[in-house]
Every structure is written in structure tokens, then in C-alpha cells.
Nucleic acid binder design. Structure first.
Lengths: 201, 201
DNA sequence: GTCTATAAGCAGATAGAC
DNA sequence: GTCTATCTGCTTATAGAC
């Protein structure tokens, strides 16, 4: 990202080779696969083919490596705007549609699953996940919809979204892992719709 | 459990003091609070007021300590039977009722949250959780209900149950943490009902 | 920008004394 | 049943040479 920015200026180039990017890529994969604790600076360095000290040189600490590397590869704001622009009766299914298709991209799934895995044992990572899912993604949706109890609705939607991700990709429930994207959307959509805009007791 | 079994026999007593139970209690708390990786033999021993080597003496390995200590404190079978005995139109709300009330008991919540936390980074723990929630708890329910796609339904129900637990107790979504038990049941019930016995696309 | 060397500490597990 | 002592290996992080 930083090293290969498509804007050739006249000054001297910021980085030399793609080493930093290679480290980031390796870290992303490992954080996504085995979580924060079981990812080590050494194993990341080995996977990237560099010295462990170089990882520290670029990212200063393991925590910072996690934060910089687990940034969402897309901006949630326009997505939220798009969802709000459509019909409210189908917003649940369209939210499911967007997220489940996004999870097909390893760059997205790795980051989301990595954040979930880390949140399971680290309170600080839990805050990061809270800020992202009910915070940036679902919260603005329910607040702009003009429904009652928007925060509660955002929490309920988040619980089903996180739960499906955990059950499908982390716990590995077979019947869910066997689903294709379109069927997953069809099953989750109605539940999300009820939480988002349906009547709540 | 093992040391203080209420059946005074004539032979010599199996254990000496409640040390083993104290270790188990301390381990349960730590596994539940911070997960498998961040729980150490040494910290468990310190909390129980014993020597670390004693923990190994009783449980042989950290893995075995986890397995023996994270056993469900109740038998799922009669619970499933009870749920199946009632009206099918209310089985979703009754399942939510049972589980959310069970989570009020620290002995239950500690075990379930500990298993979820561990599953996030350990594939073997993920299998334990898979065997428990879609396996022993929800699976028999959907299979006995006589509905179509019982395994898929069990997976979907599990995803919402696990997701609520993760969002409410692990990620700490405020709007969910603020809910009382009865309101939680009222919100989750209909979603569970649809997954359990409702029409699926 | 890249690496060597090393600090400083904690992990799980083992052997064996009492 | 309980503890002392220790082995072996791993961790993050730092200082500094090239």
C-alpha cells in the first residue's frame, strides 16, 4: 500500500523493495488463520523470507503489526449509503448479499476472521471489532433507517453476522460450510431484515 | 466432584483434600476469562494456591486440564427431551429460555464461553464446540422434529446462539450487554423458531 | 534497508526428594 | 500428595554492525 503508491513524484522513493508489503501479506495470512497469540514475529518473518528484526524495524511492535495489517480493505461508508438508498423491505437480504460476497475475497475474509479470532482472547481487539461491526457497519444503517432502538437492532444484527462467521469459518460447522453464497444469503436475509426493520417485541 | 462424592464407603478415601477441585475451579475461571492460550499452568497453580507441578501431577497436560475442566455441568439429553415434549410452535422461545437462563449460572457460562474462546484459535477446541452445540444440543432437536434439512437448521440455530454469546459476553456489544434475560429471549426466540421449524427458502 | 547477536523472560513438561 | 529444581524451547524486543 504505502510502498507502491501510484503517484510517481520527483523526490527520492520512500521504500526500496516490496519487503514491507511482503511482511504485511504474511502477517495478514497468519493473523487470519491462527489469531493473534499464535502468530509470532518469527513465523511471519520466515513466511515473508526476511529477518525477524526487520519486522520490528517496520512495525515497532506485534500489536502495531496487527492493527496496521488488519485494517479493512474497503471503506464502509459508501456501502452503508448504498444499502440505505435501496428499498427498506430488502435491506436485510442486501446486507447479507454484500457481506457474504465480500467474504469471498480473501483480503476481506482474512481481516474479518482475524479480528474475530483476536477478539476472543484480547479485550483490546474486542474493542476493535465492536468499533467495526456494530460501530461503523451496522450502527449507521439502523440509525439512518429511522426505526426504534437503533443501537439494540445493530447489536442483534451484529450477533447474527458474527455468529455465522464464527460457525461457518472458525468452528467449521459442516452444514454451513457446505452452503454456497446465494443460499447463505437466502437463509440469513430474513433474520437480518427482522432485526433491522421488523417489529421488535 | 471426584473427591467429595457423597457416598461414604468403607475403603480408603480416594483423594486427600479438595486440592484437585481447587485447581479445577481456578482453571475453569481462567479458561473462561482469557481462553486457552493465555491461561498458564503457573497462573492456575498460583490462583489455586498450589505448586505448578501439582497441576501437572493431576492432569498430565494443559490440554487434558482444559478438556476435564470444560465439561458441561449438565446433561443435554434430558433438556432436548423436555424441549421436544412441548409445543413445536414455541420451541424456539423455549430453547432461548433454557440457554439464556443457564448462562446466568457461572458454572455454565464459564464453560461455554471458555469453549468458544478456545475454539477461536485451536482447531481441536473448535471440534469440541462443534460436537457440543450443533452436535449434542441442537442437532438432536432438529432431527427429532421431523423437519427438512435438520443438519442445516441445526447449523443456523447454532450460528445465532454462538453469535449472541460472542457479541454479548466476549465482544461486549453494549446494547446487548444491557439486555435482561427475558428481553433477550423475546428477541432471539423468533429467529430460532424460524431456523428450527419455520419455512426455509 | 538488512541482518547478527543477544538480552530478559516465560512457557510446558520432567525427575525425583520428602 | 506435595514441592524443589531444572531442562528445553520459545517469545518479544533492543542495540548496533554493515
Amino acid at each position: 500500500m504505502t510502498t507502491t503508491n501510484a503517484r510517481p513524484r520527483s523526490g527520492r522513493r520512500p521504500g526500496a523493495s516490496g519487503t514491507r508489503a511482503a511482511i504485511a501479506a504474511a502477517a495478514r495470512v497468519q493473523f487470519g488463520d491462527v489469531g493473534f497469540d499464535r502468530t509470532t514475529i518469527r513465523s511471519v518473518a520466515a513466511a515473508a523470507g526476511v529477518d525477524p528484526a526487520l519486522v520490528m524495524h517496520f512495525y515497532c511492535s506485534k500489536q502495531q503489526l496487527f492493527v496496521e495489517t488488519m485494517a479493512l480493505p474497503f471503506d464502509p461508508a459508501p456501502v452503508v449509503a448504498d444499502l440505505l438508498a435501496g428499498e427498506r423491505e430488502t435491506i436485510g437480504i442486501r446486507l447479507a448479499h454484500f457481506l457474504l460476497h465480500a467474504m469471498e475475497d480473501p483480503a476481506v475474509s482474512t481481516v474479518l476472521l482475524g479480528r474475530i479470532r483476536a477478539a476472543a482472547s484480547d479485550p483490546e481487539a474486542a474493542r476493535l471489532l465492536r468499533d467495526l461491526v456494530p460501530g461503523e457497519l451496522v450502527g449507521p444503517l439502523t440509525r439512518e433507517l429511522g426505526v426504534d432502538q437503533p443501537e439494540l437492532r445493530a447489536g442483534l444484527v451484529s450477533s447474527q453476522l458474527i455468529g455465522f462467521a464464527v460457525a461457518r469459518w472458525i468452528v467449521g460447522v459442516e452444514a454451513l460450510a457446505a452452503l454456497d453464497v446465494e443460499r447463505s444469503i437466502a437463509f440469513l436475509g430474513p433474520s437480518l431484515q427482522r432485526f433491522l426493520a421488523g417489529p421488535l417485541p
